[in-house]
Design a protein around this nucleic acid. Sequence first.
DNA 1: ACACGCTCCTGAACGC
DNA 2: TGCGTTCAGGAGCGTG
Length: 280
Amino acid sequence: MPELPEVETVKGGLEKALLGQRLRSVRVLRRDLRVPVPDDFCKALTGCVVTQIIRRGKYIVGVLDSGRAFVLHLGMSGRVRIYDSGLPANLETHDHVTIEAENGTGIVYHDPRRFGFLILAEAGNWDSRPPFDRMGPEPLSGNNVFNGAVLHQALAGRKGPIKTALLDQSVVAGLGNIYVCEALYDAGIAPERSCALIDEAMCVRLAESIRTILLRAVAAGGSTLRDYQKTDGSLGYFQYSFSVYDREGERCGGCDCSNGSVVRTVQAGRSTFSCPVKQV
DNA sequence: ACACGCTCCTGAACGC
DNA sequence: TGCGTTCAGGAGCGTG
């Protein structure tokens, strides 16, 4: 499940492969992704030079020298595969879009569940349009864009559980189910705790945990569960560092709950994993 | 404004 | 062994 660390890993791969490259050929094999691939997608990309690759939340934006941009979301099961010496002779089922650059690099977008999408945007103002216009701060941005005070402000007026608030991309960008569970564990905050009962000191701790967990996961190349792979086909390995996620009934990753175990609950239809001893 | 349920989709895992 | 059922979840949308 691609969340910020996985998307960041894919962004790095695309940057290395495509930055400064002119796109020679673009093919759409299947148009009906969650959002349909636009009719003029191939035409809009072909012949353009990629001038910038940006990650915003779980989205990747590829800026073109034409004044337009492509926007990629990996959904649940989207994978980007990069081939340094050209596209493979035989494509697989669920390979939906291919891109070739003039230097021979081949890119394949593969997405069995088709929750992801590839669309077009205007390069100059992509960030002032949906979904970016209401997106919260980047947790790993360097300029103190995201900190305890910012998080506290974003939670103001909310009464629902902190777990579901952190999944809301307008509160903070890029988190999904895995890293929300891990960050709440790291901060020692119970997932069902109401946002109204989280003071600024707790927000400081939580913001720091979010950054720490995400940085560790990025360094590990993301987490591979089921679908996700890096752009060269190798696997991320942060899943081996999970403290609570997908560990129901096991001991948590390191608190002193000698005979306690990770519990699974359901919030807003999603699994939540937590340690009731450490998290209050 | 916020909260929550529903929906899209497929493959893996599970149960009888 | 084999087939049917359940689950996983990002995010937009509709409803309360």
